[in-house]
């Protein structure tokens, strides 16, 4: 049974591509057959985050227009043999593909992959409609900021209107020092406002920038964000994993004092 997951947010720059890359890589590391599809036609980015930009021959638009077979356009990942990328076209625009074509292409991929992950462009126009057309479930990415949460709420409404069966929330770039000061909404605040199930809490971690610089997804690595993405992968795959201490916002200091209290 394959599952088609769209990673979306409404607002740009909140971490859709980073989330797609890490969740896709993490699932492949668990032995799943995964294809990552970049649906952001004209502004492709997933290839650079994955470090596969130099291997692209054909793209999504070529597949849809019949210039090549799907197999020819798939880029095999450097690290995991069961992970593939279908890059988007850089020189075309969103209108080059329509939702019906996306549904048709995805149905061809379904019997070959366990997970089909669609990296959605920002906005709610045609690119968004293309990305959600064939999706079974959605990961909505937001940061704990007013503008990003507002857009996420709008996106959730649209996903529900399009009858996406399962919608889960990823809260990205959480800064626990700011939450503690009362200067950032906590994960509970965000979940309370958006009222959809939570699937991941990703702390603001400079290692994400470093990983993107290198074109190496950091999922599973010994970093806060790496562990957070790993947990998202487990949860996507149906395993219940508790939210880690750092995810809940227990600081180093609380842990230290906790040790003294116990003894």
């Amino acid at each position: 049974m394959s599952e088609v997951i769209v990673v979306t947010s409404g607002k740009g720059g909140v971490g859709k591509t980073t989330t797609s890359a890490n969740v896709g890589t993490g699932l492949a590391a668990m032995g799943k057959k995964v294809i990552l599809i970049d649906t952001d036609i004209g502004l492709r980015n997933l290839d650079v985050v994955m470090g596969l930009e130099s291997r692209i021959v054909y793209n999504l638009v070529d597949v849809v227009e019949g210039n090549c077979r799907i197999k020819q356009a798939l880029v095999r990942d450097k690290r995991y043999p069961t992970l593939f990328l279908l890059p988007s076209a850089q020189t075309r625009d969103k209108s080059a593909v329509n939702p019906a074509q996306m549904v048709k292409m995805i149905s061809h991929l379904k019997d070959q992959f366990d997970y089909i992950i669609l990296d959605c462009p920002a906005g709610i126009e045609q690119g968004f409609q293309n990305a959600i057309a064939g999706a079974d479930r959605a990961l909505v990415v937001t940061t704990p900021e007013v503008s990003s949460i507002r857009d996420a709420d709008r996106i959730i409404g649209l996903l529900e209107a399009n009858e996406i069966q399962k919608i889960d929330l990823v809260i990205n770039r959480i800064r626990y020092d700011m939450i503690k000061r009362g200067d950032m909404m906590s994960s509970d605040d965000v979940v309370d406002i958006l009222s959809i199930p939570l699937i991941g809490l990703v702390p603001d971690d400079e290692n994400v920038v470093i990983a993107t610089n290198q074109g190496e997804p950091l999922v599973g690595s010994n970093t806060l964000a790496g562990q957070a993405y790993q947990n998202i992968c487990y949860r996507v795959n149906g395993k219940e994993v508790p939210f880690l201490d750092f995810e809940r916002g227990i600081s180093f200091w609380t842990k230290i004092t906790g040790i003294f209290h116990r003894s």
Binding site: R150, D189, I193
Partner: peptide, 19 residues
């Protein structure tokens, strides 16, 4: 009020009309 509470209150009002 902390900026966190301000953000929460603003969002709650904003989303009502958005929704």
């Amino acid at each position: 009020k902390s900026s966190r509470e301000i953000a929460k209150d603003r969002l709650k009002i904003l989303l009502i009309s958005d929704r």
